Simulated assay, not measured.
Amino acid sequence: MKRPLNIAFFGSSLVSAYWNGAATYYRGIIKELHKKGHRVTFYEPDAYDRQKHRDLPDPEWADVVVYEAAEKAVLDMVGRAVDADILIKASGVGVFDELLESEAIQRRGREQACIFWDVDAPATLQRLEENPDDPFRDLVPQYDAVLTYGGGQPVVDAYTALGALECVPIYNAFDPETHHRVQPESRFQGDLAFLGNRLPDREARVEDFFLKPAARLPDSNFVLGGNGWTDKDLPRNVRYVNHVYTRDHNAFNVSPKAVLNISRDSMARMGFSPATRVFEAAGAGACLITDHWEGIELFLEPDTEVLVARDGEDVVNILKNLSPERARSIGEAALRRMFSEHTYAHRTEHLESILDRLVETRKVASGMTLGSNTP
């Protein structure tokens, strides 16, 4: 094993998945980095009531630093992190993002590799396209690399056009220690379940792919989980179970006959952006129905390991013809694919090689010998 790295990671939250879809992704990646001997300090703001809805105690595989959602605290945290081998600023921290992005570059150590990790690249790129004066445009070429949650070649090409020195997708994956088969629970049982927060750039697609099919199939039972749907007008056969904590995701996935993935608008347009839910469901052996997006076959084989719907009418037809036996067969095939290609251990093998190379490049460029630093 190469020399262990000390990594300072600024993200939304590691210990709370409340209004924080990136939590599972962060946990899977960071846990595997720890197994490889690297040390990660995760800096997260006390914001959006996430600390009140923690679903993970401070883990053994990361040092978690929760800081006040104030400018001085942000600056103090960046100051603490300047001695790390690698400083990672993730998108969507939610508190002083612009300040973090600029300070990470301005205050970096000479030997420190600095990475921007975009966990919502389609949305970020759309924002930059619509706003030529966005200050992040000037910062992109100053980061040693841009890593992305997904997006494939379209995202790589877009970031390269913005001057990124390097852009590499590190896709979502499956954590066998977290996502696995459990006993079904009656509160989540039904014909189709969907788990997702109510967001402006997904709500219309939820109506098309989930609520309209429910109205078309009044004798079927549908389950809706996630934040923000309390005041939404729902068909009578849709049971709303509110926020579903991470500890209950396995039961949510295995209890219904099928589960539904619905991409946000920007992710669907960009393609190659499988959501965390795809891997959570497949990793629990669930029968997954997903909206169509380019690149799905790179992760799961349509009709064999996943069912693909182009609109709500497709969802209706799939449910009408989906037997329990076929649902089980699809779930079993998806689970086999997860183990063979899509664990976080697979992703971190790729990531580790990138981090090692970036650190070595900074070492050579700075003309200094890296010591054992602590973020």
Rank of each mutant, 00 (worst) to 15 (best):
T160G: 08
G151M: 03
I289G: 01
R187L: 07
T276D: 14
T41R: 09
E360A: 15
Q126V: 10
N317V: 04
I88C: 12
V316A: 03
S263R: 03
L211Y: 07
L335M: 12
A113P: 14
E68I: 01
P176H: 05
E166G: 07
D356E: 14
R247P: 01
S255K: 06
L5W: 10
R247K: 10
S372N: 13
T124G: 02
P141E: 11
A251H: 06
R236C: 07
T304E: 12
S102E: 12
R181S: 11
E32V: 11
R347Q: 15
A327Q: 13
A90P: 02
E325V: 12
D134P: 09
D219V: 01
R357D: 15
G228F: 09
T160S: 12
T343L: 09
D201F: 11
R347P: 06
Y171P: 03
A286H: 01
P154S: 02
E32F: 07
M1H: 08
R239T: 07
H350T: 09
V64F: 15
I289T: 05
S186Q: 10
E111S: 14
G225N: 00
K36C: 09
T343N: 08
D175K: 01
S13L: 04
F42D: 12
S366L: 05
A23G: 03
R326Q: 15
D133I: 12
G331T: 06
K72E: 13
A158Y: 08
K363V: 13
E98D: 11
L195W: 02
G152F: 02
F10I: 10
R347F: 01
P176W: 04
A214M: 10
G331H: 02
V206C: 08
F222S: 12
L300I: 01
A23W: 00
A204R: 02
Q51P: 00
V65Y: 05
A17K: 09
E360R: 15
D63N: 15
N253L: 10
W293P: 02
S323A: 10
E166F: 05
D303G: 02
D134Y: 13
A284Q: 05
W293I: 05
D76I: 07
T276M: 13
L75G: 02
A121V: 10
